[in-house]
Simulated assay, not measured.
Amino acid sequence: MGMKTKADARKLDGATQAHLRKLVVEAVRGGMTQTDAASTYGVSLRAVSKWMKLSREGGVRALKPGKRGRRPGGGRLNAQQAWADRESDAGPTGDAVLSLDARVRREPD
């Protein structure tokens, strides 16, 4: 016999996730235990507990999908950051090289 695998609800689109949350919350409010609801709907007990807390504090509206993914442009460097990054990759220059060279060539005492 094969093992039963649990579907990952995180892979669902936002509207489907919101619907799932609402179904789980309604089931618990209707008398199902949180443990049974987690098992029935294939989600973690922690998720059910979190959704119940959200629904108590903010109603069904709190279960709606939030924004997903990164903010647009959030990973880009501005011009100053890019310049500083290039300079740090270049290694020591100018006086720093001369100072390093002088220390390396110094005779031991």
Score class of each variant (00 low, 15 high):
75 G>R: 06
20 L>Y: 01
41 Y>A: 02
91 G>C: 13
32 M>F: 11
3 M>L: 15
12 L>T: 01
42 G>E: 03
47 A>F: 06
98 L>I: 08
58 G>E: 10
1 M>C: 13
71 R>S: 06
27 A>K: 03
98 L>M: 04
34 Q>Y: 11
43 V>S: 00
4 K>Y: 06
7 A>S: 10
6 K>F: 13
108 P>Q: 04
47 A>W: 05
55 S>V: 02
40 T>C: 13
47 A>R: 03
70 R>W: 12
15 A>R: 07
72 P>H: 06
99 S>V: 15
21 R>C: 04
29 R>C: 08
39 S>K: 06
6 K>D: 11
30 G>M: 14
45 L>R: 09
27 A>F: 08
8 D>F: 09
95 D>W: 03
55 S>K: 01
42 G>Y: 03
102 A>G: 13
97 V>L: 12
91 G>S: 03
20 L>S: 04
28 V>F: 06
37 A>G: 11
23 L>W: 08
103 R>P: 04
48 V>Y: 01
8 D>G: 02
44 S>R: 07
83 W>S: 05
36 D>I: 14
60 V>G: 10
96 A>L: 15
12 L>Y: 03
20 L>E: 02
48 V>K: 00
33 T>A: 09
14 G>F: 02
41 Y>Q: 13
74 G>M: 15
22 K>R: 09
84 A>P: 01
27 A>V: 11
83 W>V: 09
